[in-house]
Amino acid sequence: MALGKIEKVIGQAVPIPGDDIDTDRIIPARFLKCVTFDALGEQLFYDVRFDEDGKSLNFPIDQPQYKGANIIVSGNNFGCGSSREHAPQSIKKAGFDAVIAGSYAEIFFGNCTTLGIVCAEASDEVRASLMKAIAENPSEKMEIDVASSKVLFNGNSYDVSIKPNSKSAFLAGNYDSLADLLARMSKVKELEAGLKYSFKS
């Protein structure tokens, strides 16, 4: 599974304010009735984007100035709730490559890393100034530099942090761990033989 290295994410950003944005908000459970992830991009944030009659509520990602954005800037505890990979998959399928939030729910964070979505953490102050700067310059391109954990926007540099394990995985291009796991199958079998389990019907 040769993956490209992820050293930078460059593109327009969209502010999605709010803390504790949960996985049901990101992709409502009714859209999980699928055997592939293919259609999930269109259903991202569906219930906060559209009213019950399907009329647009002018959610940030639907506002014309943010069309084509590939970086989300949001609040604390982003992605809390379900383990469903449908949430990061819908973010990715909708064209987003990175999220900048205060913090992340753990399972969500791991799922994003595996998919190559860069999840950077930033303080409340940094996010507030980023959101303000983005609103004032929505067409401006943002650059997230993974190695230095810096965000460059509109001539300013902002400090963010990227968890060391995910940072090294992005830079090495091994954020999908399956190849590493498969390479150690002889060790796996050795360990398995020595473990104490007893479930036979």
Binding site: F37, S82, S83, R84, E85, H86, P88, Q89, I107, G110, N111, T114, L115, D176, S177, L178, L181, L182, R184, M185, V188
Partner: peptide, 13 residues
């Protein structure tokens, strides 16, 4: 709990 890519990993390894 794990995501679907990890379900894949557990099935495979």
């Amino acid at each position: 709990g794990i995501g679907t890519s990890q379900v894949r990993d557990v099935l495979a390894t």
